[in-house]
Design a protein around this nucleic acid. Structure first.
Length: 229
DNA sequence: CACCAGGCAAGTA
DNA sequence: TACTTGCATGGT
């Protein structure tokens, strides 16, 4: 299974090329982008980040001091601007309380412990927490999103009912814990999902050639659902 | 016009 | 555990 996943990775990489994720000039910008992109097209997040930069607000100190309502107006293009302003403030408060306002310092504690603390922040769920760990702090954590679950289902690698944690354990259990690999793999799965593979379950136009012809009714991969890491 | 986009929290059953 | 709803703009 490891070699099969790696083969898929190689195919995606040669098809789409390196994705250069995560766009962002600083770890803080990556975190802000991770929150702003929740259920939002990245194009609109870029506008919000431009606004933040234009107002010189992409800074932990400034974000701590700005009023929530004013922040909301600035990130408006990203949508859900009221809740996202609250979420950004919640993260920044957490950042100052526990890490002196420095995103880089979060990486000094154990990854599992940090993940748990991030999940305790209102507005940070699994995907956002893992995106922060991988893309802002370079921790070998595989990010799972809707594309990833669909990807596994379409290619008969795993079943649809798999939970976030099961899918994450699946990837991390069958791949070497490599930051660059996890970074590129997740980004490539998104690229694939955005190009084609939207027409489930046929996956027409997919550059991959998996399960072709045979294996019509792919079930869950046995031995992975309750398995440990 | 409808529908989706790199989710999450709170509520319900 | 699994499903529903609110949040809201901008692109196709």
């Amino acid at each position: 299974m490891r070699s099969r996943l790696l083969a898929i990775f190689e195919t995606l990489l040669s098809t789409f090329g390196p994705r250069h994720w995560w766009p962002g000039e600083s770890p803080l910008e990556v975190v802000v982008g991770a929150i702003l992109t929740q259920n939002t097209a990245w194009r609109n997040v870029e506008k919000a980040i431009r606004n933040l930069k234009g107002a010189a607000l992409l800074d932990a100190m400034k974000l701590r001091e700005i009023e929530t309502e004013r922040l909301a107006g600035i990130i408006r293009p990203a949508g859900f601007y009221r809740v996202k302003a609250i979420r950004l403030k919640a993260f920044v408060d957490f950042l100052w309380e526990e890490f002196g306002g420095r995103v880089e310092d979060m990486g000094e504690i154990e990854t599992a412990e940090l993940r748990a603390r991030l999940l305790a922040v209102s507005g940070i769920g699994r995907e956002t927490a893992d995106s922060i760990l991988l893309y802002a702090l370079n921790k070998p954590v595989f990010v799972v999103d809707a594309y990833t679950v669909r990807f596994l289902r379409n290619h008969g690698i795993h079943d649809r009912t798999a939970t976030y944690d099961e899918v994450q354990r699946f990837f991390m259990g069958h791949l070497p814990a490599d930051v660059h690999l996890f970074n590129e793999f997740h980004a490539l799965i998104v690229a694939l999902g955005q190009q084609r593979c939207k027409k489930v379950p046929a996956c027409g136009g997919c550059p991959l050639e998996l399960e072709k012809g045979r294996g019509k009714r792919p079930g869950p991969v046995r031995g992975d659902r309750k398995g440990k890491a």
